[in-house]
Design a protein around this nucleic acid. Structure first.
Length: 267
DNA sequence: AACGGAACCTGAAAGC
DNA sequence: TGCTTTCAGGTTCCGT
């Protein structure tokens, strides 16, 4: 379930598991997660015996530096990295690394039910990584640069926000919430937003990211048993009253993605 | 260059 | 209860 906040959370987790470790075995549970033409044997050859370095994130991509090249991981919709206890089986396991670090050997597993993620090893940065636009956490969101991008887009603003070359890491939830915080209707042609609205949108997106990350930290601090409650302001709340103006929240499809918004206070 | 729509894949939830 | 349909927080490809 990854947008930028969750991928950043994954990055921090992996940063506590991997750097300095050596991969002493690799097991590919499902080769379909590999790029076309890449074999499990080739993956093992590239990884086994090599040392893991920094874990970095740009947008929704993770880059794990190796002593030669890097491992690139994208979680798609359902990907996650786990470190199981003992020999516990991991549901939907796709690739498993056996990592020895500080004298301890652990299994680090990439699992992905829907197979929409990516697992790639390369000697240089892959195109998907280099094509990414600025990352909101590392670079902030510069309203002027965003305005330049939006000026040549005639389609609705919301799908444009999901374009990873415009901003890296914005997903359906962050786009939905950011537009709400900015009072901007997701159907508005991107090029029609005023400079003031773009500024509000930049702040709204950053606010959405910050709130989601704070929520994640809270979930770790206080065990959340009820797991089903929706932590978002309007995402997933169609049909209920807008928390700002009390109009009923609508849901439409834009660019093939469900989009919740308020016709009362998003213009 | 950029747009809308379909495709990729499969589990979980909702509908009947 | 059990079968069917719908939906899912992502990306990529294809035709226009």
């Amino acid at each position: 379930m990854p947008e930028l906040p969750e991928v950043e959370h994954t990055r921090r987790t992996l940063a506590g598991w991997l750097p300095g470790g050596v991969i002493d075995a690799v097991r590919v549970h499902d080769p379909r997660i590999l790029d076309p033409g890449v074999t499990p044997a080739a993956v093992a050859r590239h990884l086994v015996g090599h040392r893991l370095g920094r874990v970095e994130r740009k947008g929704k991509w993770l880059r794990i530096t190796l002593d030669r090249g890097a491992l690139f991981s994208h979680l798609g919709m359902t990907g996650r990295w786990v470190r199981p206890a003992g020999d516990d089986e991991v549901r939907f396991a796709k690739v498993e690394l056996q990592v020895t670090r500080r004298g301890a050997t652990r299994r680090v597993v990439y699992a992905d039910a829907r197979l929409l993620g990516r697992f790639a090893i390369a000697d240089r940065d892959i195109a998907a990584w280099t094509a990414l636009g600025p990352d909101p956490l590392h670079d902030g969101i510069d309203p002027d640069a965003l305005a330049v991008r939006l000026a040549r887009r005639s389609g609705p603003i919301k799908p444009v926000l999901l374009d990873q070359a415009v901003l890296a890491g914005i997903g359906n939830i962050q786009a939905t919430e950011g537009l709400f915080f900015a009072h901007v209707d997701p159907r508005r042609p991107a090029r029609d937003l005023s400079r003031r609205e773009i500024g509000a949108l930049a702040r709204g997106l950053l606010r959405s990211i910050a709130e989601t990350m704070a929520q994640q930290d809270a979930d770790l601090t206080y065990v959340n048993e009820s797991g089903s409650d929706n932590p978002f302001t309007i995402y997933g709340r169609e049909g209920t009253a807008c928390p700002r103006c009390r109009a009923t929240l609508s849901k439409i499809v834009l660019g093939g993605r469900g989009t919740v918004f308020c016709t009362g206070c998003q213009r």
